[in-house]
Design a protein around this nucleic acid. Structure first.
Length: 211
DNA sequence: CTGGGGATCGAG
DNA sequence: TCGATCCCCAGG
């Protein structure tokens, strides 16, 4: 089933060590890959991201330079994973951006399933495939990403992003981030990027002016 | 030690 | 709309 033309290479560290907003936009279309212990690949195309800009960003866990056991991984150099538990039950996966000690990251909010769909169905136990990876907690569940992946390099063998084609700019929609109403002015910053019209995009479905 | 709150999800 | 569920973190 998983016959791709050719396997794209892993994104290099240089991809991540740039402006966070650039990384967030260009990650749309790239392929998040999880390799299980038995060697099986489970993957999906990234269709929704959010940028978190560090000290000056009230919505970021590293806001105000907060540096604790949980946020420590945000201070790693670009190209590492930041995975945290939210609401006591779900994990969220982020890629760290920029250089060491610049605590910025991109939250991966939704994927379009590509490989290992049967495995995802088993993990998620949901009726509709649309619910497999259409949210940050859902995709971690589907790809079996958990706290054990916090801090790991995205050039590792178990979790990485492949350099498939980025979504062209005219198909990218931008809006405020989800679930950060408490962040005052930062709550309105246009730091959420998503593939226009893609059914796997989470949250408020853009009032599809379907006509 | 304490307790308030959270970058979510799914049922009703 | 609301409850689940528990880690995280600041304050005392």
């Amino acid at each position: 089933m998983q016959c791709f033309g050719s396997m794209a290479r892993k994104l290099p560290y240089s991809f991540y060590r740039r402006e966070t907003v650039e990384v967030a936009r260009e990650l749309l279309g790239k392929t998040l890959v999880r390799v299980l212990k038995n060697g099986m690949r489970v993957s999906g195309r990234i269709v929704e991201t959010e940028a978190y800009l560090g000290s000056e960003d009230l919505a970021a866990h590293s806001s105000g330079g907060l540096r604790t056991k949980r946020t420590e991984s945000m201070y790693l150099s670009g190209g590492h994973a930041y995975v945290y538990l939210i609401y006591g039950m779900h994990f969220c996966f982020n890629v760290v951006t920029r250089e060491k000690d610049e605590p910025q990251a991109v939250l991966i909010r939704a994927l379009e399933p590509v490989e290992g769909i049967e495995f995802m169905r088993h993990r998620r136990r949901t009726k509709r495939d649309i619910d497999l990876t259409s949210g940050p907690g859902k995709l971690c569940d589907a790809l079996w990403i958990d706290k054990s992946h916090d801090r790991i390099s995205l050039k590792s063998e178990v979790l990485f992003i492949e350099d498939t084609k980025s979504l062209s700019a005219n198909k990218v929609d931008v809006g405020p981030r989800i679930g950060v109403a408490y962040a005052e002015a930062a709550a309105a910053w246009p730091l959420r990027f998503y593939a226009r019209g893609n059914p796997y995009v989470s949250g408020i479905k853009s009032k599809s002016t379907a006509r």
